[in-house]
Computed example of a mutant assay.
Amino acid sequence: MTTVTPGTVPGAFDAGAPGYDLLVGLNPGYHAALRAAARALRLPDRGRGARVLDLGCGTGASTAALLEAAPEAEVVAVDASAGMLAAARRKRWPARVEFVHSRAEDLAAAGVTGPFDAVFAAYLVRNLPDPDPVLRHVRDLLAPGAPFVAHDYSIANSALRRAIWTAVCWSVVIPAGWAVTRDRSLYTYLWRSALDFDDADAFRDRLRRNGFTGVRRGSAGGWQRGITHTFLGRAPESR
Rank of each mutant, 00 (worst) to 15 (best):
H101E: 15
H101I: 02
F116T: 01
A121K: 12
R136N: 11
V125W: 10
A118R: 04
Y123A: 13
F99W: 09
L135F: 12
Y123Q: 14
L135S: 09
A109S: 11
P94T: 06
A104K: 05
F99H: 11
P94F: 09
T113H: 12
H101D: 05
R103A: 14
R92L: 10
V112I: 11
R89C: 00
A109N: 01
L128F: 07
G114D: 00
F116Y: 15
D132N: 12
D117C: 01
L107R: 08
A121H: 07
L107A: 03
A118D: 07
A122D: 01
P129V: 08
R103H: 15
A104E: 06
R89P: 02
L128E: 03
E98I: 04
S102P: 10
R89T: 13
P133H: 10
Y123N: 15
G114R: 06
H137V: 04
A108S: 12
H101L: 15
R126N: 14
R126T: 15
T113G: 07
W93C: 06
P94S: 04
A122R: 11
A109W: 00
A108G: 05
P131T: 03
V134W: 11
A108H: 05
K91Y: 04
V100E: 09
G111Q: 04
R136Q: 14
R96D: 01
R89K: 15
E105I: 02
L124Y: 06
D130F: 05
L135W: 13
V100W: 07
N127A: 08
R89N: 07
F99I: 02
V125R: 08
D130K: 13
D106E: 14
D106A: 13
R89F: 00
V134H: 02
R103W: 06
R136V: 12
V97Q: 02
F120D: 02
P94G: 03
L135K: 08
A118N: 08
G114F: 07
N127Y: 00
P129Q: 08
A109G: 12
H137Y: 14
R136P: 03
R96T: 15
E98F: 01
A95H: 13
D117I: 00
F120G: 09
R103K: 13
V134I: 10
R136Y: 07
P133C: 06
V112F: 08
F120A: 12
N127P: 09
E98M: 09
R89Y: 04
A104R: 02
P131V: 00
P115R: 01
P133D: 07
D117Y: 00
V134S: 13
D106P: 00
R126P: 03
P133Y: 10
V112P: 06
A110W: 04
V112T: 08
R96I: 06
D132Y: 00
N127W: 02
L135N: 12
